[in-house]
Every structure is written in C-alpha cells, then in structure tokens.
Design a protein around this nucleic acid. Structure first.
Length: 464
RNA sequence: GUGGCCAUAGUUCAGUUGGUUAGAAUAUCGGUUUGUGGUACCGAGGGUCGUGGGUUCGAGCCCCAUUGGCCACCCCA
C-alpha cells in the first residue's frame, strides 16, 4: 500500500516547522503585546453550531463527521430513500470540523459568559478545515491566528487592530496593503438603490470589479435579478475613483439619505483620521503612524462571510506574486445572538499562517539563523565511551546546551560525522580510549574543521 | 459544483513514427578510508510505467473508463 495523506493536507518537515514556528511566534508575541490572551476550542463543533453562519457557500465547505456506530439506525427510512443528502446529513452527522475560529469563539463566549470579564480579548492559533478544491495558497487544513475583542463597541478596537496588523507584518519584514471598508456603507448603498435584501449579492459583484470589469459586474448584477434602474443608480459608485478623502466625500453625498450608510462613513472617517491626517506627529494629537503598511479605503471590498456588520479588513502582500489575502477580519454585531447572548458586538482579525508562509518563502524573508537545534554531538568509538559520555551530556544539558549522543555504538565514525553534518550540528566531541585515559575531550568545530583538546568545564563555558 | 493540464525509482524528470532487458540525476546503503563529515572516484539495492479495460504480432507511448495530483473559476486565510 502506498502511503498518502488526504487531498489538500500536508506533512511538515523539521525545516518547515522551524519556519512555521517563526511565524506563529511573531504573531503570538504581538497578540500578547496588545493584551490578548489565548484560548483553545475543540477541532470539532456541533454540526448545528456551524451551519448557517458562513453563507450557503460556506455550508457546503464544512467537513461533516459521520456519527459513530451504526449511523443509519434510527433514521427514518423515508429520509434515507428520499435521496435528499442535505436532510440526511443532518441525521447522520452531529459533528463537524471547525471552519473558522470566530464562530467557535462566539459559542465559547456565550457558553462561558459568567466567567468572562468584558471586554474580552482573546487570541487563538489553531487549524481549521474547509472542503474546498485545493489550489495555490488554498489548503483543506490550515492554521488561522485570530485576535478578537468582544463586548466593546469602541472604534479604538478597530484602530488597534490596524496597528496590530502593521506590527505583525513589520516584524515579518513583509510590506502589506491593509484594505478597509464598512458593511454599513454597503448596506447603505443597497438601501439607496432600493435592493436592501440583496446587499450581499451586490457587494460580492462589486468586489470583483478589478477582475471582471464594469461590464462584468453589471452583467452579474443583472443575472442576480437586480432591476435596470437599480443598476443604473449604482454606476456612479462603480465608476468612481479618487483618494480616500474624495471617496469619503463622494459617499457622504451618495448616501445622504441612508442613516446606516452615513453611520458607516462616520466610522471609517474616525479610523482614517487617526492614521491619515497630519503624519509625523506621533504621540501628539492622537495621531498614529503606521510603520510599514499602507492603509487603503476600498469601497469594493465586500468579504463573503455573512456575520460581518461593520468594519471589514483584508490584507494583501505588497510584494511578490501571491495576491490572495493573507489576513482578514471585521466587526460582527450579533454573532453571539444566535447562541442566546444578544447585544454583544465584537471585532477581530485572522492571519492565514499558511499563506503568510508561502509569501515569505517566495520572497526569501525567513531568517537564516534558526535551523540548528543541536549544538553539540558526542561521537563515540564504542559502548564504553558512550557510557563515559552520559554524565558529560547531562552536565551540558543542565547548562542549557542542546546536545545529543549518537545512539548506535557500533556505527562507524564516518556515519556519525555525516549525521552531525546533515543535522547542521556546529560542534562534535570525539570520544575514544585516548580521551578517556587523559580525561579530556576532543572538540571539533564542524565549520572550520579546527580540533582542540578541552575539558568539560571549558566546553560548557564556550557554548553557553 | 464547472473547466484546463498532468501521472515513469524514495524525490525531480528523460524515454525517438508503438519494437528486444525502461534510463539519468539526486537520495539511500556499501567501498576507496577499521579515530574524522562536507568534495571526489567505484559499486549495490530500488519500478505491477496510478488503476482497469481495449486496439495491436507487440503498448511507458494510441483509445476508453476510473482514481489521484496540480492549476483556474466560484468562494476564501
């Protein structure tokens, strides 16, 4: 039998894990800097917890887990014979792999509300699963790194999240564009053209503007049942271009009759005012300057997830060829309401660790240093020497020096030396009868080839 | 869910209009070298050519089906 793993999943080698951990460490460190605390939730959630939270498309992409045992027993025969898979699925599958970290987080908040102090800031770094067709930058199992704050309406949270994103990518040496928009504006637009119930359809179509062009967008709107009048009213928006200030002024005028639209603009303005207006005055007048990222208002940014209601974010690399989003998020006003805790607004962002890995890899942005784990290897001539080395090894480890001994006493020296070479171990100690007799160590520097006699105390000092 | 490309050693790939025993590089193991790795030289093992059918005297190569992978759309981290 040929060993394989399921489509869209991957194994990670030690070399890859070193790089992956580098990303996780940077993100985790920044999360902690901003006061977020870690939680974890199970790999699987109840089927009913996840269904209906991500839109129709999302529902299809949730991995369902078959009930244990005889899963067909107790299912009404008429359902089985009906051949309606959707109905049958709900009967034979009570669990599903989690699709993102936000919905399980909302469930967590509701379930543990009495032991949580609000506003609650949590971070969470865990794998999620999506039954998508895999392709470049798209995996069926991947890690999300989420930071969310729930129980606070303040726009300070949005502003801090933008800073946090900037910090993470600055620390990773990756220049990015942070795109921001507001669902309230999108609702306002839909309201303005008299198609309020089609908000998502409209925004998804507009989102594709730079891909399929104005004609493509209009065609899609038409196919989705939008009236010609409504489409006509949308044209100024689709055609508009300008800088942030011009965009905001334009929207203010366009949405002057939409309460919700104006609210969205006001929110955006608050955020942009914090970042955009006179720069170079950090620490004065409450103005913040981003370190390396570009913050951009993108009125075509929509995002597919159903639960967003306010600000929405999306981050793309500003270098390299990889153009999918590597980070996304937004505000959700009532995600906990479904689980019985209304009026609990939250906002958060999610870093796609695997995509960030792909980008950093392409651009060669991983730091070089971190791929030597063992500092020193004991090469021995036989069992007697091995035994002699064990206490010395213990001393090195007590001193916090990563060290190992080649386990096979009969292995030839060439074999042991190659092992050190391949594992990138910078030093070896060679132990034979001479060394034991003279109570000394032969230390070889693998890079220079230089060899010296040294005692254990000096060795510890040298490597500490 | 829709479309395109691909499948030969552990890995990356050659393989002529269909013709004898399917090759290379790399990796692995052994040797040159019984206390010295990276370089070099020599050697060895390793393949149901994804799977099943068909055409043919003869198929890695042609045809059909099927499975798997990659890529694009949809959507998304």
């Amino acid at each position: 039998m040929k060993p394989t793993i399921p489509k869209g999943t991957r194994d990670f080698s030690p070399q890859e894990m070193v790089k992956r951990n580098y990303i996780f460490d940077v993100i985790k460190r920044v999360f902690q800097l901003y006061g977020y605390l870690p939680i974890e939730t199970p790999a699987m959630e109840n089927y009913s917890t996840l269904m209906g939270k991500y839109g129709d498309e999302g529902d299809k992409l949730i991995f369902k887990i078959l009930n244990s045992g005889d899963f067909l027993s107790g299912v009404d025969e008429s359902i089985i014979n009906s051949l309606e898979s959707k109905l049958l699925t709900s009967k034979i599958s009570e669990k599903a792999l989690k699709y993102d970290l936000t919905v399980p987080f909302a469930r967590y908040v509701v379930q543990h509300q009495h032991q949580i102090t609000f506003p609650f800031k949590r971070y969470q770094i865990q794998p999620v699963w999506r039954a998508d067709r895999p392709q470049k930058g798209r995996y069926r199992e991947f890690y999300q790194c989420d930071a969310d704050v729930i129980g606070s309406n303040s726009l300070i949270n949005e502003i801090e999240l933008v800073q946090l994103i900037d910090d993470v990518f600055t620390n990773l040496n990756l220049p990015v564009i942070i795109k921001i928009n507001n669902r309230k504006i999108l609702s306002g637009i839909a309201e303005m053209i008299g198609e309020k119930d089609k908000t998502i359809l409209i925004t998804v179509a507009i989102d594709k503007l730079d891909k399929i062009g104005i004609d493509g967008v209009n065609k899609e709107l038409q196919e989705n049942g939008l009236s010609d009048i409504a489409i006509e009213k949308l044209q100024p928006l689709i055609n508009f271009s300008g800088n942030t200030l011009e965009k905001i002024n334009f929207l203010k005028d366009l949405l002057k009759n939409s309460l919700i639209g104006l609210k969205g603009i006001e929110e955006l303005e608050t955020i942009f005012t914090k970042f955009k207006l006179p720069v170079n005055v950090q620490g004065r007048g409450g103005i913040i300057r981003l370190r390396t990222s570009i913050l951009e208002l993108d009125i075509t940014l929509a995002r597919g997830l159903n639960y967003y209601t306010g600000a929405i974010f999306e981050v793309k690399s500003n270098a390299g060829t990889f153009k999918s989003s590597i980070c996304g998020g937004g505000r959700y006003d009532d995600l906990t309401g479904i689980f019985g805790l209304p009026n609990m607004s939250g906002v958060g962002i999610s870093f796609g660790a695997d995509r960030i890995y792909d980008v950093l890899n392409e651009l060669n942005l991983f730091p070089e240093s971190s791929n030597e784990s063992t500092k020193i290897l004991f090469v021995t001539m036989g069992e007697e020497e091995q035994n002699y080395c064990l206490p010395l090894l213990a001393m090195l480890r007590d001193a916090g020096i990563n060290s190992e001994i080649y386990p096979d006493a009969s292995a030839k020296m060439k074999k042991q030396m190659s092992y050190a070479d391949e594992k990138n171990i910078p030093f070896v100690v060679i132990m034979g009868s001479d060394e034991i007799q003279n109570n000394i160590l032969s230390l070889k520097d693998m890079k220079t080839g230089f060899q010296e006699k040294i005692n254990i105390e000096s060795l510890i000092q040298k490597l500490s």
